[in-house]
């Protein structure tokens, strides 16, 4: 069974949670207030700044000389054929691996030297859920929340489960969930620590149409709140509809970097398929 995704709250648990926490607990949370201040100053910097980025795996160049920026708060789509290097680029951006050559900065922080700081500000939705199947949705979120040093991981986890419409299944093991429900918990996990950049690697893969619609809306709402989104996707039409910017990778090189409004589906397909 694939449950239809429903947004139960008009308001997403904001990534400016300091006020909400203060209101709920009566205590100020200096870490979060500090993070908020940092996020405001960091808003001036591009979310992603890549200069001459190369990545070689097993002696094979996967990414070649990538130079591009993704402005803060921008919704960008990353397109390309299978094997073009989309997943590798997202792994670089999430600091799961480092560039072989070139410089990569996330909100002004160098990916080689400031990995931990960068990780505190990014959320990643991958091909796989990155969840523990034997733990419940709530246990997963509380566990990851604690690793991110959240002051109230239980409250945050329930807020996010409410946001993704799974609060009634909070105590059920993830292994009992449908693909769509797992994807929603995965989104909640990526948002736990209030990231400023959301990296999504084909988040619609395997979802039914209503679930795709809801995940689309969740991501659009997060972007409206100021979160930069980089969406790796195969669906050109959907990407042009959702994103402001389009980046096309072809054989590890940046083949196109343009505003979505200036492009047609045919143009993008031509760039992807060109030999």
């Amino acid at each position: 069974m694939t449950a239809r995704l429903t947004i139960q709250h008009a308001d997403i648990p904001r990534f400016t949670q300091a006020g909400a926490i203060e209101a709920r607990t009566g205590q100020s949370d200096s870490r979060r207030v500090l993070r908020l201040a940092q996020s405001e100053s960091a808003a001036m910097l591009p979310a992603v700044h890549a200069v001459g980025v190369h990545k070689v795996l097993d002696d094979r160049p996967i990414l070649r000389d990538l130079t591009f920026d993704v402005p803060a708060g921008c919704y960008a789509a990353l397109l390309g054929a299978n094997g073009a290097g989309k997943t590798t680029l997202l792994r670089l951006l999430s600091t799961l691996t480092t560039p072989t050559r070139g410089e990569l900065e996330i909100f002004g922080r160098n990916s080689r030297r400031q990995g931990a700081l960068i990780r505190a500000g990014i959320g990643l939705i991958g091909h796989q859920s990155m969840l523990y199947r034997d733990l419940s949705a709530l246990e997963n979120l509380v566990f990851f929340g604690r690793l991110h040093d959240l002051s109230e991981p239980g409250v945050r986890a329930m807020d996010l489960l409410d946001f993704v419409g799974l609060v009634d299944r909070a105590h059920d093991p993830v292994k009992t969930f449908s693909r769509g429900m797992v994807q929603r918990v995965s989104i909640a996990r990526a948002l736990l620590h209030e990231p400023r950049l959301l990296l999504a690697d084909e988040p619609f893969a395997g979802l039914d149409a209503p679930s795709v619609d809801t995940v689309e809306r969740l991501m659009a709402q997060l972007n409206e709140q100021g979160m930069a989104v980089l969406l790796a996707n195969h669906d050109v039409r959907q990407s042009l509809r959702l994103a402001e910017r389009v980046l096309v990778l072809r054989k590890g090189r940046l083949a196109l970097d343009a505003a979505a409004s200036e492009l047609t589906v045919e143009q993008v397909l031509r760039e992807i398929e060109q030999r």
């Binding site: 799961l96 990780r119 990643l124 991958g126 859920s129 990155m130 523990y132 690793l147």
Partner: peptide, 15 residues
């Protein structure tokens, strides 16, 4: 356990 569903990546993404 860590390789199932790439849970290890979730750990590696934590600071």
């Amino acid at each position: 356990v860590e390789r199932h569903d790439d849970a290890l990546a979730g750990l590696l993404l934590a600071p």
